[in-house]
């Protein structure tokens, strides 16, 4: 495992920790999309089904378990926690996730390495992860409500994607026969989506800044 891959995993982990800390400290999930969080839970569950079939390393097992359990923990807070659930922007968070899930599933049936149950689900998770941030992006555009911790969460997610791309470049030049076109294509698209996210973040931040100026 190279330094980019490890740093990418750590920033991904940090993004989740920041999100959970924000929810616990402020007892609020305002500005967060439950739909994006649910898509991430689907991504993790369908990708990490291989926990039952293949063992890669203890590191992989532990990280997979952390990602699955933390995503369900976030969903539990947003749906079920007595105080936090009341702060969820239900009326604004209306993105139709079927428009993402169905095309991703169709695509994974058509473009995959092998037409088997686990392989199709794994491919589906790769495609879905690339677009899972979209409901969050739409919510952000609608509410213009973004606090420091939410922006840190987005920054860390973007950094995780950028580090994974560096990891692919590194592996391509250092390992023989290392090539994974499905992951590279979706991953590049996903990172591009984060650029968009940052653009809207700066836009809303500027807007808030102007609005808060004393008249």
């Amino acid at each position: 495992m190279n330094i980019f891959r490890f740093a990418g995993d750590m920033t991904h982990l940090c993004s989740i920790i920041v999100l959970l800390l924000k929810i616990q400290a402020t007892k609020s999930c305002a500005g967060l999309s439950l739909r994006t969080q649910e898509l991430y839970a689907i991504v993790f569950v369908s990708r990490y089904l291989d926990l039952f079939f293949t063992f890669i390393s203890m590191y992989n097992v532990i990280m997979k378990l952390i990602f699955i359990s933390s995503s369900f923990c976030i969903i539990w807070y947003m749906r079920c926690h007595r105080i936090v659930a009341q702060t969820y922007d239900r009326e604004q968070d209306t993105f139709r996730v079927a428009f993402l899930v169905v095309p991703c599933f169709m695509l994974s049936l058509m473009i995959n390495h092998e037409f088997s149950f686990t392989e199709v689900l794994w491919t589906f998770s790769i495609y879905l992860e690339a677009v899972a941030i979209l409901p969050q992006l739409v919510l952000l555009q609608r509410t213009f409500n973004i606090d420091t911790l939410t922006s840190n969460y987005i920054f860390l997610l973007g950094a995780y994607r950028a580090l994974y791309m560096l990891n692919w470049i590194y592996r391509y030049f250092t390992e023989r026969d290392y090539s994974q076109w499905i992951v590279w294509t979706s991953g590049t698209l996903q990172t591009a989506t984060y650029c968009d996210f940052f653009y809207y973040y700066i836009l809303s931040w500027r807007k808030n800044e102007r609005l808060s100026l004393p008249s």
Binding site: R5, D9, H12, D50, T54, I56, S57, N60, M63, K64, F67, N112, H113, E114, E119, W122, Y164, N167, D177, Y178, S179, Q180, W181, V183
Partner: peptide, 10 residues
């Protein structure tokens, strides 16, 4: 479809 799949990434 013949390319090996790398599943050691998260």
């Amino acid at each position: 479809a013949s390319e090996p799949t790398v599943k050691d990434e998260l």
